[in-house]
Amino acid sequence: MTGAERGEQITADIVQRTGITEAMIERLVHSFYTKVRSDPMLAPVFDARISDWEPHLKQMCAFWSSVALMTGRYHGTPMVKHMPLPVDAAHFDRWLELFETTARELCQPTAAAHFVERARRIAASLEMGVAGGQGVMLGVGERFRRDTTGAVQ
């Protein structure tokens, strides 16, 4: 079996086990970012950086296809993009809250659990990267916090 065939088999196995499809990913991404764009905490972070949402949504669909279905469609550097953002643990918690709510609203339980488990790992990794970019090494169980001025605590 070639590498490409193995990749196709992995994706097919995930689809069969979870019911996740590219159409489901597209609905999830678009619904989630609709919520993000109206969220008082998250919208300002995105509004400051994204003026044309269609390319971002397309990229996020590719990202979640790669994360959820192992398709390899995404070829970006999410850590590099997130490190300079003025975000902390509260932002990641809110992002997760909206993502988990959206996944549970739109997906069957097995698919929602698959998405949520990956989202939690991604959020933890990005929070650690953002902290590291600010010179903060997080210990096990520690969270990255800024004060109300945006300074690192």
Results as ranks from 00 to 15, higher is better:
88 D>L: 09
96 L>F: 08
138 L>G: 12
115 F>M: 09
19 G>W: 04
29 V>I: 06
102 T>G: 11
98 L>S: 04
32 F>T: 06
55 P>L: 10
4 A>L: 14
18 T>A: 02
20 I>G: 03
128 M>P: 00
107 C>Q: 08
96 L>R: 09
58 K>A: 15
78 P>G: 00
40 P>R: 01
85 L>S: 02
108 Q>F: 04
111 A>K: 05
12 A>V: 05
77 T>S: 14
110 T>M: 09
137 M>T: 15
36 V>A: 05
31 S>V: 06
91 H>T: 10
19 G>M: 06
16 Q>Y: 02
109 P>C: 08
23 A>L: 04
105 E>M: 12
58 K>V: 14
52 D>R: 14
141 G>A: 14
107 C>K: 02
81 K>H: 07
146 R>H: 11
124 A>F: 08
111 A>I: 03
136 V>L: 11
83 M>N: 03
107 C>P: 01
30 H>R: 15
20 I>F: 06
21 T>Q: 12
97 E>G: 03
49 R>G: 13
152 V>P: 11
19 G>K: 06
117 E>F: 02
140 V>L: 13
150 G>Y: 09
117 E>S: 10
128 M>R: 14
3 G>Q: 12
28 L>N: 05
62 A>E: 13
11 T>V: 02
5 E>C: 02
31 S>D: 15
25 I>N: 04
150 G>R: 09
147 D>R: 05
98 L>I: 08
121 R>F: 09
56 H>K: 09
37 R>K: 08
19 G>I: 04
38 S>E: 13
72 G>C: 11
5 E>V: 10
84 P>I: 06
